[in-house]
Simulated scan of single mutants.
Amino acid sequence: MNIKLITVGKLKEKYLKDGIAEYAKRLSRFAHVEIIELADEKTPEKASAAQNQQIMLKEGDRIQSKIGDRDYVIALAIEGKQVPSEQFADKMANITLDGFSTITFIIGGSLGLTPEIKQRANFKMSFGLLTLPHQLMRLVLIEQIYRAFMIQQGSPYHK
C-alpha cells in the first residue's frame, strides 16, 4: 500500500514538521508514505477573480502532474463528505480491496482546488466547515490516516 499526500505550499513550523514526521514514521509499518510539497503561487492582497483563477490553474497543473493514472484520489474540499473515523477506516480498507495500491490525498492551496482536480478525485472529503490552516490540516490528515490503520488492526489507539 502506498499513501501519497500532495500539498500546496511549504511547511514552515517545526512543531508541525515534527508531528507529521512522527505519524509518517508510525504509518511506515502499514504503508509507504510519500509527502509531496508543491510550490504555491503568491496571491496579491487584493487579487481579482481572474488572478485567483490563474493562481488556482497553475497550482492545479502542478497537482495534476503528481497524480498517477491508477491512483485512488481523495481531495480535501469543504463541500466533500464528512465521515467518522471508523467509516474512513472502512473506506481505506475497501479501496485496497478494489485493487488500488496507491491512495493519493490532495490538500490544495489557500484558494482551494480547481474543478478539474475535484472531478479527478474518486472521493471528496471534508473535515467540517471550520477553516483550518493548510499546514495544520496536513497534521490532522496524517493522524487520521494512521488512526484508520489502527482501527483496522483493532488497536486501542482509537479509544
Rank of each mutant, 00 (worst) to 15 (best):
L97C: 13
D98E: 13
D98G: 12
G99Q: 10
G99C: 11
F100I: 07
F100P: 14
T102V: 09
T102E: 09
I103E: 12
T104I: 01
T104D: 06
F105R: 05
F105M: 00
F105P: 01
I106A: 01
I107E: 04
I107K: 00
G108D: 03
G108V: 02
G108H: 03
G109R: 05
G109S: 04
G109I: 11
G109H: 06
S110V: 00
S110F: 00
S110N: 10
L111I: 05
L111N: 11
L111R: 14
L111C: 10
G112T: 12
G112R: 13
L113Y: 09
L113C: 03
L113D: 08
T114P: 05
T114E: 05
T114G: 15
P115H: 08
P115G: 12
E116P: 07
E116G: 12
E116W: 12
I117L: 11
I117F: 12
I117W: 06
I117T: 15
K118S: 06
R120I: 05
R120T: 13
R120S: 09
A121I: 06
N122S: 11
N122R: 01
F123T: 12
K124G: 10
M125N: 08
S126M: 11
S126D: 08
F127R: 04
F127L: 15
G128M: 02
G128V: 03
G128C: 00
L129A: 13
L129W: 10
L129N: 12
L130P: 02
L130T: 15
L130C: 02
T131L: 01
L132D: 06
L132K: 05
L132F: 08
P133C: 03
H134N: 04
Q135S: 06
Q135H: 02
Q135G: 09
Q135K: 09
Q135M: 10
L136W: 11
L136C: 08
M137Y: 13
R138M: 08
R138W: 09
V140T: 04
V140P: 07
L141N: 02
L141Q: 11
E143D: 07
E143K: 07
E143S: 03
E143A: 00
Q144V: 01
I145S: 04
Y146P: 10
R147F: 13
R147N: 07
A148T: 08
A148P: 04
F149D: 11
F149N: 02
F149P: 11
F149A: 09
M150T: 12
M150D: 05
M150S: 15
I151D: 08
Q152L: 14
Q152S: 15
Q152E: 02
Q152H: 15
Q152F: 09
Q153Y: 09
Q153F: 04
G154V: 03
G154W: 07
G154I: 07
S155G: 10
S155Y: 10
